[in-house]
Design a protein around this nucleic acid. Structure first.
Lengths: 229, 229
DNA sequence: CGCGAGCTTGACGTTGTTCAACTAGAGTGG
DNA sequence: CCACTCTAGTTGAACAACGTCAAGCTCGCG
């Protein structure tokens, strides 16, 4: 991990909500003291159980948010792509992280101290609303995951994940940055069964698989499998 | 369901955060236009998918918060007892309820319009912090449930629920307001297996069961079962 | 060329749901 | 006051779904 302090927001291609809010209330973004941090693949960005001190915004690369469960088994809650908050679920006054975040490739993030952020959202209502909206979205995803894990068969769970990935990558054809094991963790399924279902879907002509490149050929059917469970 | 409008907070034995906040900023609580609603057992207090228009506070009685899943199978996220918010997870700008709430006995709630609440927390920082803290607690419970559902055996899941119930009712001896089916829904287990495990725990001298009255005799062992999964 | 990580496949055993039958107790009407 | 019915709870047995173990494969890289 490498750090560079006091980033100048003017040079940041990503005009994030924090920056916008700060401009709107006529405050110099320098006051935010934004800090970039660069992580390599598989490095921890934040670790379950440690203190939450900063709001974290993903600039480029990608990361997985996961809970570290029993017997070293993880569940990936969802993935982070540029222009989203890390730690959204925790930054409102939860003293420590309820989950871990790891970079899935070389990844740059921007940190702003919680205290700075707080003073900002208390001055700017719109910003608070934006935060809350993003927050609500995360919670919705998680509730959905509860149903999936408890009530869908592994077929439906993997179908869910594939649809989710295609949405993340914005296309029916994508190269996922997940190993088979991670695809399993995202779906709450063992690695072996993740593999089995990929080949099954391939044989059924629903998808094409080449390594980590996936092509969804029959989105309709895949959606049906996901819905039926 | 019966309603009485324009409650006078002075007569309410429960001095909730909303009331406190309103006093702190020197605003007459009458402006909150608090409304009581009385529900009988098993009535819906809010229904998954409908609009969120009010913040809801439980005055007395109890309620279950659950997701309505596939094939009419529900998962109870957690229970509500007096002096807690209903709909906490939704009231920040989520357009509709992500879950349902049903009264588990005759229950009184107090409603305040979302818009009123919003104007309040924008004026009073402490109140916002309190809301967020409660919010974080709910999310923590839910993340915990994900691990439980996916990684623990039914033995551990039921143990979890029993410990949770004893915490809710504040004693090792309690009468739960849940049917066996609901205990199953709280634990992500079928009704039959919920029954089986109660008798198993009883035979192992870990608990006493008489109808819906539970007595935890060996909390230590029960905790161990919960931790080991 | 050989090694290792990631991937794949088969066989097997455990876990937990489901179906079905039965019991106990509460409420109802003759 | 006794059948009856209805609901909640209980128990057993069969079956399907998944995870686990073990072995083999592939491909990139030293």
């Amino acid at each position: 991990m490498r750090i560079s302090k006091n980033i100048d927001c003017k040079n940041c291609e990503l005009k994030c909500d924090i920056y916008t809010a700060s401009i709107e209330i006529d405050e110099d973004p320098v006051k935010l003291k934004p800090t970039y941090a660069y992580y390599s693949k598989n490095e921890y960005i934040s670790k379950q159980g440690t203190n939450v001190s900063h709001a974290i915004f993903l600039i480029n690369g990608s990361a997985k948010i996961f809970i570290e469960g029993l017997n070293n088994k993880n569940i990936i809650l969802y993935l982070m792509t540029p222009n989203t908050y890390i730690g959204l679920l925790s930054f409102f006054e939860t003293p420590y992280y309820l989950y871990s975040v790891k970079a899935m490739e070389d990844t740059t993030i921007c940190m702003v101290e919680i205290e700075v952020l707080k003073s900002l959202y208390l001055k700017n209502h719109d910003f608070l609303l934006k935060l809350n909206k993003a927050f609500g979205k995360s919670v919705a995803q998680i509730l959905n995951k509860i149903i999936t894990l408890n009530q869908k068969h592994i077929r439906g769970r993997i179908a869910d994940s594939l649809l989710y990935l295609s949405q993340i990558y914005g296309s029916d054809y994508f190269e996922m940055k997940l190993s088979r094991k991670e695809l399993g963790e995202l779906s709450g399924v063992s690695e072996e069964n993740a593999v089995r279902l990929l080949t099954e879907f391939k044989n059924d002509n629903i998808i094409d698989v080449k390594g980590r490149k996936i092509n969804i050929k029959d989105r309709h059917l895949l959606t049906q499998i996901s819905n039926l469970g």
